[in-house]
Amino acid sequence: MTDNSGAQTRAVSMTDVNKWFGDFHVLRHINLTIDDGEKVVVCGPSGSGKSTLIRCICKLEDHQEGIINVLGTELNEDVANIDEIRREVGMVFQQFNLFPHMTVLENCTLAQTLVRKKSRKEAEEIAMEFLHKVRIPEQSTKYPGELSGGQQQRVAIARSLCMNPKIMLFDEPTSALDPEMISEVLDVMVSLAEEGMTMICVTHEMGFARRVADRVIFMDEGEIVEQNDPHSFFDNPENERSKLFLSQILQH
């Protein structure tokens, strides 16, 4: 363990990280630090490595070179370290990944009772508290398949929050949703940001980025091409590739 004095303000730091899928160099020389309480939006064309980047932070993917340090712990092959990090980092997926054979409430209490060793009653109280927060407490006895996409994604957010994570990762949380359901999920994410959660969001919701993000990171071909505050990034992109990308997503 590193000492806590300076490391506490760093949620994530990545130093010269490289990763390959087979021969494909998917992350190239990534250097990135994210402070405690910072909200970062990662965007870029598809295949640019942005999802892989955040999947490395919760060790769903292994990196081959460089150092990734999350909450003062270095990610290596030490199983105990990885489990500790995974408990502190919440992840929300594009496809929600709720457990279809469990009710909404069971989805939210499972890890609390198994990992945090909470009593069932306590876990259910916490779950209901977060289901209130994502404005969906009345659905707690239903199964995920009975909910709309927007409702499922809000449950997935509540499920992560129940573990009381220090960092929340969002991997294109609204990309699989029908247009009319996007805002209900973004509203939840905005209120989470306002409470001071450290957030790293892969998303193309530019309105959300402008409103919430402290920093926007633009990735292309496995590299961080540009990073800036949202207003500077959207209004005056510096890099040619950023300009091209923004013109493509904003032209309609």
């Binding site: 997926f93 990944n97 709720l98 890890a111 198994l114 990992v115 992560s160």
Partner: peptide, 11 residues
């Protein structure tokens, strides 16, 4: 994604 969800919850 089901297994990944379990992983990220620390199971």
């Amino acid at each position: 994604g089901q297994d990944e969800a379990g992983l990220t919850l620390g199971l």
